[in-house]
Design a protein around this nucleic acid. Sequence first.
DNA 1: CCTATCTTGTGAATCAATTCACAAGCCCTC
DNA 2: GAGGGCTTGTGAATTGATTCACAAGATAGG
Lengths: 209, 209
Amino acid sequence: MPLKRIADSTVRRLSLYLRFLEEFENAGLTTVSSEELAARGGTTSAQVRKDLSFFGSFGKRGLGYQVAELTQRMRRILGLERDWRVAIIGVGKIGSALAQYEGFQQRGFRVVGLYDSDPAKIGRNMYDQSVRSIDSLAEDNRERRVDIAVIAVPASAAQRVADQVVAAGITGIMSFAPLQLHVPAEVTLNTVNMAMELERLSFALSNRE
Amino acid sequence: MPLKRIADSTVRRLSLYLRFLEEFENAGLTTVSSEELAARGGTTSAQVRKDLSFFGSFGKRGLGYQVAELTQRMRRILGLERDWRVAIIGVGKIGSALAQYEGFQQRGFRVVGLYDSDPAKIGRNMYDQSVRSIDSLAEDNRERRVDIAVIAVPASAAQRVADQVVAAGITGIMSFAPLQLHVPAEVTLNTVNMAMELERLSFALSNRE
DNA sequence: CCTATCTTGTGAATCAATTCACAAGCCCTC
DNA sequence: GAGGGCTTGTGAATTGATTCACAAGATAGG
């Protein structure tokens, strides 16, 4: 639907707007202006309108936006109207935290598989799933049809796991490994790098006024 | 040290460069060019040189950069030459994962306190620390001198906790709560929003060619 | 129906980030 | 110590993102 490439910063803000719209909806508001959305998110009304304008025109001049309608539009734009089938690879601390995270399931990200390489974990039942060997990923995926693989293994194993994920035909990856993964262009990769986030904070704290 | 405000994207890349430099150092390389650093990180050599130029000139023309020297410079720039005293607030799934995360400690982020509001957890010993009530944060901090509070509590409690953190005189916050926190300007806040990251991936997957 | 008051949607202008391109410096060889 | 081959550091040019500013629609009230 979008005519030109959408900037990453725009997508991040859309996600924020959706969060605020849900708040407003829960608070019983039926209508919201770009100014109100902007105030809630610490941005400007022009920014909000520009962001939305990439996808269409959803408001009424003089009036603002219908909360319920805009919420639904945002969900559609962000691809949240469908369920996503997720496999979590690496059932260590981070993997376990994610497997149990309710917000995950609630938003339509359904965990359909847990994988690990540790023989002590393989075969065990954890978080309502039977843990399987990473080596069975490709075979499993013939019927599991996983959309997104969450990579939560140590840095040293991450690239090998990523290769297996790609080989299994999974085209979405969310990685928590603190390094740069290499995947083919047709695979979409999003990395959350905790080390980088800490260092960003360290930099900011070290360079105040 | 930096003369003008440094862009967030620049700091993120500095953090990446540091990671690559450590790799190169482990591999025994003594010298590296901006072109090699760029190739490793999927950017351009001009970008690398421009990023570094905000902080000084660290290379030798015709030769490149000394790996060991540049590594140390990057550490200094990012504020990683000192230890940071960290308190983890909310010892649930995410908080526990972080408390046990070795990369955390290794990079000089020392966990000096665990806090929770659950009476079943308060007083217990977890991960080599005695869990304390969030309400004792301000009092504790008179001697604990925490630099960074990691907020890993449910969204509904996050703003209240943030207020307590600020009241305790802690000026660095890393939040994992999926909402926008409001803090005074003198407090540095960095938010990792998992919901946003998932939605970013969802958007990317939904809008492929 | 006309006027006053809002608020959107969007080109134009500004501000910021990235890329280009090249002079300047360094090493090595002869 | 002069020349060739590299690679840095940085102004200038370009590309991209944000902000400005205003015409166009919409509502409400008289």
